[in-house]
Amino acid sequence: MTSATGNAVIRVRDLEKAYDIGDETVYALHGVSLEVRRGEFVAIMGASGSGKSTLMNIIGCLDRPTGGSYELDGVDVSSMSDDELSEVRNHKLGFVFQNYNLLPRMRAVDQVMVPLFYSGDPAATRQERAIESLRRVGLGDRLWHRPTEMSGGQQQRVAIARALVTNPSVLLADEPTGNLDSRVTEEILALLQESNEQLGVTILMITHEADVAECATRIVQIDDGKVIADRQVTDRRRAHHQVITADHDVVPVPADAASGQPTVSPA
């Protein structure tokens, strides 16, 4: 349910994204309206080609709409310059991708420090903040590892630490568990739920797995460039509870709220 309350973080109205292919105009988004309140965990579902990724890219200020309006934190971003959009991405948004998108050869701490380079953070506190963010995602003992020295789940944790290090308003996750097996998927989902609840960061997560979407508080379904369904999750699934300690790897323990075994198949 979209309710027009004052604390909407994302307010999208009649959003359109059209491509001219020859004489034809193809709409990737055809009038999407959506409001996301602060602290929500929204799963966006849809088949491939439904326009869900285009919507994410526009909300993530990586792409511009061809029509409609988009307000982030009460500010209209559709008319911003390229530099202003860079700043918005840096300060207000965090990204988590399916393929982690870490920088090659860089140590975990350096990866997480990259957004802080561009935010003009003082050099003295950068590393401290990066280490703190890595501890929060349970990688206290992997601070100096490079991507090639880490598992997929660990790499995705580094990506989440990088996304959260600037304390963004919104975390955008594009199929964050798409490349992970079922056990690690649960770990990552638990981490996202925890971040959502403990840090209060609003999360938008694209997925096409029903039981991954069930971990969110709200599910929006997109098809053919339009929102076709939008519902609150009544029976929210808790991802396998995690014990996260500062200096040790994640230890999964069975959670009481878990509804059966997850059936995640690789994308």
């Binding site: 390229d82 860079s86 700043e87 991405r89 920088l103 990259v114 561009y118």
Partner: peptide
């Protein structure tokens, strides 16, 4: 190119 995309996504401006 990917690295450039990642850096842009986390806030690098064109001039960076």
């Amino acid at each position: 190119t990917r690295e450039i995309g990642i850096r842009r996504a986390v806030g690098a401006r064109r001039r960076d």
